[in-house]
Design a binder for these strands. Structure first.
Lengths: 332, 332
DNA sequence: CTGAAAGCGCTAACAT
DNA sequence: ATGTTAGCGCTTTCAG
């Protein structure tokens, strides 16, 4: 049987409350006794029982991370897990633990209400992918520490943080403009569902308008094949653009493919730049200049805000935090 | 304030122990009272307090997942997270929760000992990547429910499960042989550190020996560039092989690249097959025939064994579980 | 079938 | 600076 606070008290010849205070570094215990008790604790291999402690303290140092954890998500959305690691690492540093919860849009409101009521955790971080108005309502009503990762697409009073895709777009554009490129095509995703490429475009436009230039956009390019096809067409033009800026690695791969077939050189004949460093911008030939967003950092930030919310529940955070990074490689 | 068992007892005009039993479906409570109490519970929006329950039961329904969660791991090792989702989903189904713990080889023995002693969780699943002899010793000494994912590379009395890379290799080889291919080159990884490709080779050899054939292997091919270079050389031969079997997607990409440059056709002039479906075997042209291992399933299995260990602590599991899947595509 | 009562190991007033 | 004591909300004998 593991040693308890009671055993320590006996061994040290003090009361259990003295032991408790010593272990929790209370100001009212002399350094001498603290040390003595701690030494005894080490000696006896004592570790406080986490369950009893949680119970007495009415908090357990657990944060929930709610997201849709469908089969395949590890491959389809590694960004999510990079975020999760960021969250976890920050929390661990602060003595908290992270529990993963699989939640879908459909069952989120009910499930999360239960989670809040059962006090299984001290707070919850929600991935925007499962957010609905109904869920926002539930979260708003129960004053439970929460933080959404990803900007909700409706007006709300929730706390959230998100990547600034606008900044990333702006950074990409500024880089290209600085390099002297003027004639740029931006291959965007689905103009309705792909909020991200729209937000990147906002940032890009900001930079181009500054120079009184405009950028050509082609939207609805959702994958490798689309990209290959459209690039083929672009290369047929009388005057081909100087750069193709791709919304992601797969689009970039499509471009490269078509450019290769034409036996053209990157970046001499045409340059390529992409958003995201993942999954293979450093693995293709030539290696791609890319704008990366640090999802790990993003997760850490989220965790930080979460713990702040727990301390000051009235605080409302609605902010963009991001550190887009430019990785210059051979393709520009 | 959330309702407690006490409030329910009052409302129902029974004792708290009756309420407790009714909620926990004890056989000694009449169906009638059970229903009445449950209705009242629903009505009052009662949810048992997880912390109090854990405390009283001396278990909290939490399983730890210990792995090295360094920055970047989400991208570098999505398999890990696919496994984590598998673990989590199974556990949730059974009423358990999963806590992620960042642990390194260096701090694992100490950290995990603490985790065990503090009873923060009911059991621990460890990724083989953090396993050392010392850790194995700690786990062996404390009779704490554990399960290692990945076969330890030393003799031990731990419980573990692992993917059968041998089966995957065998499956790949059998497929190629069935298709009528005889002349195959296997591009392997580093012969010292890459245990996985060695184990795949064992399976491959099994299949080839059955047909009294042999396979050519080239080891030390660790990435895109290596693969591109070696493929170039292979294509210079007087008699080129019928198939190149690649240890992963990146190697396959390298092959494709070199083959394209030569203006040769896949699979007419030479076929390509790869291990892993991830990250882009379905995105390249031609799409690659691949052997995939279901890591989600693997995670579920691990979770299942973990819960069994909790119920029957003496049980020792040392087994391979795997369901390699063959995905036939255009490249063979 | 139901109730009374004794904890679970620790924290946190409050008293000394 | 240290000790006393009353819980925290629930489970679980044991008695009825």
């Amino acid at each position: 049987m593991a040693a308890t606070i009671f055993d320590l008290a006996e061994a040290a010849g003090v009361s259990i409350s003295t032991v408790s205070k010593a272990l929790n570094d209370s100001y009212s215990i002399s350094e001498k006794t603290k040390k003595r008790i701690r030494d005894i604790a080490d000696e006896m291999g004592y570790k406080p029982n986490a369950r009893a402690r949680s119970f007495a303290r009415k908090k357990n140092g657990i944060i929930l991370f709610a997201a849709n954890l469908s089969k395949g998500v590890g491959f389809e959305n590694p960004h999510l897990f990079e975020m999760v690691t960021g969250v976890d690492r920050y929390l661990e540093e602060k003595g908290y633990s992270l529990i993963l919860k699989h939640v879908t849009k459909d069952n989120a409101p009910e499930l999360i209400k239960e989670l809040m009521l059962s006090e299984e955790a001290d707070g919850i971080i929600l991935h925007a992918g499962i957010l609905t108005r109904q869920l926002a309502f539930v979260l708003g009503k129960e004053a439970y520490p929460h933080l959404v990762i990803g900007k909700p697409d409706f007006v709300n009073t929730l706390s959230w943080i998100d990547v600034s895709h606008e900044s990333a777009g702006q950074m990409a554009a500024n880089y290209l403009l600085d390099k002297g490129y003027r004639d740029v095509v931006f291959l965007m995703g689905d103009p309705v569902n792909d909020q991200i490429s729209l937000r990147r475009l906002d940032g890009i436009n900001l930079a181009f308008e500054e120079e009184e230039l405009t950028i050509e956009t082609i939207s609805g390019i959702t994958g490798f094949d689309d990209s290959r096809r459209i690039t083929e067409q672009i290369l047929e033009r009388d005057k081909i653009p100087e750069v193709i800026l791709c919304n992601n690695n797969y689009l970039a791969l499509g471009c490269i493919n078509s450019i290769r077939v034409k036996n053209m050189d990157i970046p001499k004949d045409i340059a390529i730049m992409t958003f995201d460093n993942y999954p293979f911008s450093m693995l293709v030939q030539p290696m791609l200049t890319a704008i990366e967003v640090d999802m790990f950092e993003m997760g850490s930030q989220a965790a930080r805000f979460m713990l702040q919310k727990i301390k000051r529940p009235n605080m409302q955070t609605q902010s963009f935090c991001s550190t887009p990074i430019l990785i210059e490689r051979e393709s520009t």
